[in-house]
Amino acid sequence: MPVGRAVSVVRFGRPPAIRKPLPISPKTRLPQPPVKIVTREIAPCRLEDHYYSTLQDDLMYLTYTHELGPRPPPRQIRLTYDPNNPYSKYRYNPPVGGSQLGRKSPPPCTAENVVQLEKVQIHIMNKEAIANRSQLLGTIMALRSLTGETEKGGGQHAIDGVQVVRGKKQVGGWIRKGIPVGAKVTLKGPAMYDFIGSLVEFVLPRIREFQGVELPPPSANTETPAAVSGVVSFGLPPSAMAFFPQIEVNQDAYPKMYGMHIHFVTNATGVGAQDRARALVSGFQIPFVRKS
C-alpha cells in the first residue's frame, strides 16, 4: 500500500472523519475530547533563550558569594513545627514574623538556585469604576489586548486571565469593601517574556524624560519585607500605555489610557534579594537610575 507524503509539515491536511460524536461536557456544553489536551509553546521565545544562554551564567557569577564549608545550623528561636508530633499535627503553623524575616540569610549560591523570573503581574486601578462599574470594561479590555491572556485560553487550565480586583475593606470617602476597583493579570512563561519584550523595545524608549526606574536611596531600610522578597515593582504613567503596539493600533477603542503597576516576581529570597532581582530585571534591559 503506497504511503502518501504530507504536502507540508506545517499545513493542516484533512480533518479525520468523526465516527462517533464526542461526549458533551456538562459544564461547558461543548464537545469534550477523549484525551486531556495540554498546549505548549507555539514559537521559540527570544528572551527566554537569552536568559538560559547568557543571563543565567552572568547572574551566577555576579551574585556569587563564597562560603567556606557548610553553614552552622540555624538558631532555634522558638519551638519549631513538627508535623509528626500528634499535638501539632493539624494545627496552624504560623510563619516567622517580627524582625527576623528581614535578616534571613539567602540560600547558598549554587548553579541550581540562580535568580530567575517566576511571573510578571500587571495591575491597573481605575478610580472611576467606584462610581460606575461599567468603566472597568476599558481597563479589562486594555489588559486583554496587552497580554493576550483569557481565562483558560488556549486550553491552559492554570491561566486565570484578567481578574477583577475588589476593594478589601471600607475606607471612608474612598473605597468600599467588595466593589470592583481595578483589574490584574498574571503572566508566566512565553507570555511574560513577550510582554517584557514589547515593554522594553516599544514603550520605555518612547516615554518622555524617562531615564530609568528610580532606585531607593542608599539609606533605605534593607530589612523590610519588600526588600527581602525578591520583587521588583514600578509604575507606568497613563501616557505610556499608548506606546504599546497592541494598544497603539486601535487606540480609539479605549475610553481612556490607564497607568499601570508592574511587578516582576523572582525566586530571590533573603538579605539582598531586591538587589539580585534588580540585577536580573536589568538583564532584560530595563534601566535603573539613582535618585539625583
Binding site: I37, P44, L137, M141, G153, G155, N250, A253
Partner: peptide, 28 residues
C-alpha cells in the same frame, strides 16, 4: 523540520481551544 511541525501543531491546538474574540469592543 521537527521544530516547525511541533510549533505549528501547538499553535493549531491553541487556536482551536482559544476563547472567542470580542470584535464588538475592539473594532467599529
Amino acid at each position: 523540520m521537527f521544530e516547525r511541525a511541533y510549533y505549528s501543531y501547538q499553535a493549531r491546538l491553541r487556536r482551536a481551544l482559544s476563547n472567542p474574540f470580542p470584535y464588538d469592543f475592539y473594532f467599529k
